[in-house]
């Protein structure tokens, strides 16, 4: 078993060829590919890192935008709430005004009704008093009452103060018609003469009176000179009666109004104010 040196040299050559072949076909390509893969992976990692950073940035911006949106929304909600509150206050105020307006109008109509009532009452009372007086005069002493009325009126004529007398005289000068005596009852000629005398005594000596009758003067008599009048009638008493009745009614109404205002002030809150359409003047004894 000796060493064949030719074979050794041949094997060395073979081995070197194999080294070259494997370097060419095995180590080189494999190492190159692995290096490429490593580069690629590191590149992709870098890209992924960049993308992640970009995504984080994006997320941060989204968060920011969302926060801004939330703030805007809150602001808008607050504004809307304030506006709604203001509108509500305004509406309540308006409703309160309308209610007050209605109340005021109701008061006015009530007052008108009161006035009408008082007028009617006065008329009715005047008529009543008149008819009572008339019936009483007819039943008892018709002539006497007329005489009394006449004498009171005559007395008044005679007892006119100077200022009044002057007024009447100047009115008499201006007048184009004769002074006129209007009475609710027919005057006898004696009564007419007496009136004539009293008028002449009070005003002018050559005064000529005209006479007429009228039912509007309730059991009274009046002297019209131009635009001025001197009268006595149940009217004046009725006026006094009317004053006292009206005063009583107004006092009553005023006290009721105060009670209503006090009740309105005690109301718990503005929310409880009824809509205007439902606010109606209370009905009942106040209208009678």
């Amino acid at each position: 078993m000796q060493i064949d040196w030719v074979a050794v040299v041949a094997q060395i050559v073979n081995f070197l060829i194999l080294v070259w072949l494997l370097k060419r076909f095995l180590y080189g390509p494999i190492l190159r590919v692995m290096e490429e893969r490593q580069e690629r992976i590191s590149r992709e990692m870098d890209e992924a890192g960049e993308r992640e950073a970009a995504a984080k940035e994006e997320e941060r911006r989204h968060r920011e935008a969302r926060r801004e949106l939330d703030e805007q929304r809150d602001e808008m909600l607050d504004e809307a709430r304030e506006e709604a509150e203001a509108t509500r206050r305004q509406l309540v105020e308006q409703a309160r005004h309308e209610v007050q307006d209605l109340e005021r109008r109701w008061h006015e109509s009530l007052r008108e009704e009161q006035d009408a009532f008082v007028r009617e009452l006065r008329e009715r009372m005047g008529r009543q008093v008149c008819s009572v007086a008339r019936r009483a005069l007819e039943d008892i002493a018709n002539q006497e009452l007329q005489a009394q009325v006449l004498s009171v009126f005559t007395q008044r004529l005679r007892k006119l103060d100077d200022a009044r007398r002057e007024e009447l005289r100047s009115a008499l000068g201006d007048a184009d018609r004769a002074p006129r005596i209007t009475s609710a009852f027919a005057l006898t000629s004696a009564q007419r003469n007496e009136l004539q005398a009293a008028a002449r005594e009070a005003l002018e000596d050559d005064l000529q009176l005209s006479f007429e009758e009228s039912d509007e003067l309730l059991c009274g008599i009046e002297l019209a000179v131009g635009g001025l009048k001197i009268a006595w009638s149940i009217d004046s008493y009725l006026d006094a009666l009317e004053h006292s009745v009206v005063g009583a009614i107004e006092r009553e109404t005023a006290s009721e109004g105060r009670e209503r205002d006090a009740q309105a002030a005690e109301a718990p809150s503005v929310d409880d104010v009824m809509p205007p359409s439902e606010v109606m003047p209370p009905e009942g004894e106040d209208r009678e």
Binding site: N14, I17, L21, F25, L26, V33, R37
Partner: peptide, 19 residues
């Protein structure tokens, strides 16, 4: 030599740098 070089060539001619 033929087997090793040929096998290496067969495999490495279609290498992939993919994962």
């Amino acid at each position: 030599m033929l087997l090793m070089a040929g096998g290496a060539w067969l495999i490495t001619r279609r290498l992939s740098s993919d994962v």
